[in-house]
């Protein structure tokens, strides 16, 4: 009995150490790859991208459905096309970044070894993530299931990347830019509390407005209306609203959740 227990402990320890090593490799590797991202749910979308990834930086060239380049460097984000890059006020996170974030925050829920590859499961409030990582620490596939929407990222080809960020940035003419995309800071603050959003245009009276439907990180639904003039926003019976007026714009935040409303109010009062 004692021997079985000791052997079990050794086996568990060995598996844990082995798993740790390929996760460490995955987190610290630099690689280049071509990948396809698909999203299936209420709306379907797909992207084809070339990715240059370093442990802390990233350059992504979106090939389809439109041609665009975005990069993460020293904690800030820029997007655009060669010779016309601007700082993105919002973070741009792909499925890989979201998986790494949840992996660090929540930890691994389950690990399996299948055909010489590792299947890593992270079950978090931001979604149920499954990643297939090979023994060299390169990702092959990452899937997230969140509120009926399945997002899948599949690497067609992954190669080690020896070039530095600056070399690839020069290739794409990515220059440090001071110009930031015009964006109301209040919406940036609000979107930092959500894990998901959809955006649409609609008319209230004669006024063209933007409706952002978002999932707050607590799970509540949040509606944000952005208008250049004051408008009458219709609410359902249990909903509450706060209004914020900026320089030439009006923002209306509607939710049923009192705590979420309180949090947003505090953010807007900063």
């Amino acid at each position: 009995m004692k021997r079985t227990l000791i052997l079990t402990c050794i086996a568990v320890y060995t598996v844990a150490v082995f798993c740790q090593s390929f996760i460490d490799l995955f987190l610290t590797n630099s690689y280049f790859g071509r990948r396809v991202v698909t999203e299936r749910g209420a709306n379907n979308k797909s992207r084809i991208e070339l990715v240059y990834r370093w442990p802390d930086d990233k350059i992504v060239q979106v090939l389809s459905p439109l041609i665009l380049i975005w990069a993460k460097h020293s904690g800030s984000f820029i997007m655009g096309e060669p010779n016309n890059f601007r700082i993105s006020p919002l973070e741009i996170l792909d499925l890989e970044d979201l998986f790494i974030r949840q992996l660090k925050q929540v930890g691994i829920s389950k690990t399996e070894r299948i055909d010489g590859k590792y299947k890593v499961v992270v079950d978090s409030s931001s979604g149920f993530f499954t990643a297939i990582i090979n023994d060299k620490g390169y990702p092959e596939k990452i899937t997230r299931i969140f509120q009926g929407v399945t997002t899948e990222l599949v690497y067609e080809e992954v190669k080690p990347l020896t070039q530095k960020f600056d070399e690839i940035a020069n290739k794409y003419n990515i220059r440090p830019s001071e110009a930031t995309i015009s964006f109301p800071s209040e919406i940036k603050e609000i979107l930092q509390t959500v894990s998901w959003y959809t955006v649409s245009r609609l008319k209230i009276g004669e006024e063209q407005v933007i409706l952002i439907m978002a999932n707050h990180k607590s799970g509540s639904i949040l509606k944000v209306v952005y208008a250049s003039k004051e408008v009458n926003v219709n609410m359902e019976q249990n909903e509450k609203m706060i209004q914020c007026t900026g320089q030439g714009y009006h923002i209306y935040v509607v939710t049923q959740d009192d705590n979420v409303l309180k949090q947003i109010k505090q953010l807007l009062e900063k």
């Binding site: 975005w70 997007m79 995309i181 959003y197 245009r201 030439g248």
Partner: peptide, 21 residues
Amino acid sequence: QQASVSEVFDYLSLVKLVGDG
């Protein structure tokens, strides 16, 4: 600070398109 409705919509749509949340 005076981003137009179109500018905000285009930017949010772009971030939504190239990002995953």
